[in-house]
Simulated scan of single mutants.
Amino acid sequence: MSSTKVSVLVAVYNAEKWLSRCLDSLLAQTHHDLQILCIDDASTDGSLALLRRYQQQDERVQVIALSENHGQAYARNQGLKQANGDYVCFLDADDWYSPDALEQAVSVFQQYDDTDCVLFDVDYVYPHRSELYAMPSFTSLTGQEAFRLSLDWTIHGVYMVRRQLHQRYPYDDTCRSYSDDNTTRLHYLASRSVRRCQGVYHYLQHSASVTHACDVRRFDFLRAGESMKRQLQALHMDADVMRLWETQRMLTLVDLYMFYHCHAHELPPGDAAYGLQELKRVWATIEPRLLIDGRTRKFGYRLMPTWTLFRLQEWLYFTLRGWMGKNR
């Protein structure tokens, strides 16, 4: 196992506060044969200087400094181009691995030759508690099974992957946020088998995260969904996969309408107007023939023949849910 190199992608943007813990967790790994690719995405704090110090202390740390900020997916791709490990994983600059995490993942790859992705256990770390990401118990999934379970994140997207597969499907950097989720799903779909290990990825939860902020970037979910559909079409995926994804796009549209319904008043007027425009634009692109009956037939989730009727449905649905305290 000691001769198996793992390349770790660490995208960094203004993460000086957490960066030492992140890098220390990599340098303390029980699996020592590492390439730690740190990509500074034009930070304005002391992150780059801190990375340089770690680079001087340990030759496994390599630093790539970008002159302009492009977002996490783009930054990771710059590191991926230089990755030379047998396997690749990522570590966000505010997160950290358990000491044996990489060893645990490599062990699964070496034990099962048909494995292309190995999921870590994910530990959500809150200010005063932590909570493991709840996944159904499984030993091995086919690529299509993993893809289906990733649509609603029944299984998460924190994993180690064979380098050749990752370089075949680099990060989707269509959007500054969320489009990198597409890459996870493509990796699963292209895998012979997907397994899990007991190594732990500690995922810090804090208000600075895009996923916890009331921000116009939430609407990037819509464009990310369109990008995924284009990629699936280019791969000539079968009708079942296309129906699954179109149905997921519809569910995402409704979910983002709830965000608009609940939080438009908190956004700058221009951002709120943009969000509504994006919702309308994407509504017009949904293909009814591809939607799977079931949830998309329920009130609140119907496509509706006109935008006015769709908006009326969403207003009624989320107003009623609000009265019952169910909107989040």
Rank of each mutant, 00 (worst) to 15 (best):
Y126T: 08
Y126P: 00
Y126L: 14
Y126C: 02
P127N: 08
P127M: 10
H128I: 04
H128K: 14
S130K: 13
S130W: 04
E131W: 00
E131Q: 14
L132H: 10
Y133V: 03
Y133E: 13
A134R: 13
A134N: 09
M135N: 02
P136A: 06
P136R: 05
S137F: 14
S137C: 12
T139Q: 14
T139E: 15
S140K: 12
L141V: 11
T142F: 03
T142C: 01
T142N: 08
G143S: 06
G143T: 01
G143Y: 04
Q144M: 01
Q144C: 02
Q144D: 11
Q144R: 15
A146I: 11
A146K: 05
A146T: 08
F147C: 05
R148Y: 14
L149G: 05
S150F: 06
S150I: 06
L151C: 13
L151A: 09
D152Y: 04
D152M: 06
D152Q: 13
W153A: 13
I155N: 10
I155S: 06
I155K: 08
I155F: 13
H156S: 09
H156A: 12
G157R: 07
V158T: 15
V158F: 15
V158R: 13
Y159R: 14
Y159A: 12
V161Y: 01
V161E: 09
R162F: 07
R162N: 04
R163W: 06
R163L: 12
Q164G: 03
L165H: 08
H166D: 00
Q167I: 04
Q167S: 03
R168D: 02
Y169W: 12
Y169K: 00
Y169D: 00
P170N: 12
P170A: 11
Y171W: 15
Y171A: 09
Y171F: 15
D173L: 09
D173S: 15
T174M: 07
R176K: 05
S177F: 10
S177D: 04
S179C: 11
S179H: 12
S179M: 06
D180V: 10
D180P: 03
D180L: 11
D180K: 03
D181L: 14
N182P: 06
N182E: 01
N182S: 09
N182W: 05
T183G: 04
T183R: 07
T184I: 08
T184V: 14
R185H: 00
R185E: 06
L186A: 08
L186N: 04
L186H: 03
H187Q: 15
Y188R: 01
Y188E: 04
L189D: 06
A190I: 01
A190W: 00
S191K: 02
S191D: 10
R192W: 00
S193I: 01
S193Y: 02
S193R: 10
R195M: 08
R196D: 06
C197E: 09
Q198P: 00
Q198A: 12
Q198T: 15
G199E: 10
G199N: 10
G199C: 10
V200D: 01
V200H: 09
V200M: 02
V200F: 05
Y201I: 05
Y201A: 07
H202G: 03
Y203M: 07
L204V: 01
L204S: 07
Q205I: 14
H206F: 05
H206T: 05
H206D: 14
H206E: 11
A208N: 09
S209R: 15
S209H: 09
V210S: 04
T211C: 03
H212K: 12
A213K: 13
A213R: 11
A213N: 03
A213E: 10
